[in-house]
């Protein structure tokens, strides 16, 4: 798991009393991951900035009702995800909502690309070009899968926290995470498979 750097303790009591410095510390600590999440969901810096601002405005307005049952990060990711999906819907009304039912009884898409690229040296797996491809591969995921993957595997939330942040069941998180990971594996297998062929 990525290192969790957002576990710093903030005083809920101080925040709820309107302590501006404490709120500024909270904003400072969480703005980078919230901005990254927003950027990966909405796709443009301008929309991501709007999501970032709206997230903290809503957080500030709703601090009085925050009971601390979830962590600050889970709560902020929840607000940010909602804002990002609202932004997506404004631009693309046909875009599905975060809680859309996508689970089907048909099972998972079967793996097609069978290339063992694990043997590639780390420096080849993570070249500048490869990193760009990893990024593009995420962008190509459907939004409902992308947000689950981002929260779980990039931001490091647990399955339970991801479910709380998105207000979906843990079973739905697991299903979407599996689909997201399988789709990414397919794309990476194709990409690294070509690198292996080129090197042969």
């Amino acid at each position: 798991m990525p290192e969790r750097t957002l576990d710093a303790v903030y005083s809920l009591a101080a925040l709820q009393k309107g302590d501006r410095t404490e709120f500024a510390r909270l904003v400072d600590a969480y703005s980078a991951p919230i901005y990254r999440l927003a950027l990966k969901i909405v796709g443009t810096p301008q929309d991501a900035e709007d999501v970032l601002q709206e997230t903290f405005i809503k957080a500030y307005r709703n601090l009085s009702t925050f009971e601390g049952r979830s962590s600050f990060s889970t709560w902020l990711y929840r607000i940010a995800s909602n804002e990002a999906f609202m932004s997506l819907r404004r631009r693309k009304p046909e875009a599905v909502s975060v809680d859309a039912e996508i689970e089907t009884p048909d099972g998972e898409q079967e793996p097609v690309q069978i290339v063992d690229w694990c043997c590639l040296p780390e420096e080849e797996l993570l070249t500048t070009e490869s990193r760009e491809y990893l990024d593009v591969a995420i962008d190509r995921l459907p939004a409902t899968l992308r947000v689950v993957f981002l929260l779980r595997d990039i931001e490091g939330l647990s399955v339970r926290e991801t479910a709380e942040a998105l207000r979906i069941s843990e079973a739905a998180v697991k299903t979407r995470l599996l689909r997201a990971r399988l789709q990414l594996r397919e794309r990476l297998s194709q990409y690294y498979g070509e690198r292996i062929k080129e090197a042969a």
């Binding site: 990254r36 290339v115 694990c118 993570l126 990893l134 399988l182 990476l188």
Partner: peptide
């Protein structure tokens, strides 16, 4: 076995990416 190994590697690669850059 290859599917499992490459799926695991896929997750590891993404998790090894740098933390969020500063805003």
């Amino acid at each position: 076995e290859i599917v499992v190994d490459t799926l695991r590697k896929t997750v590891e690669l993404y998790r090894s990416l740098a933390p969020a850059p500063p805003v």
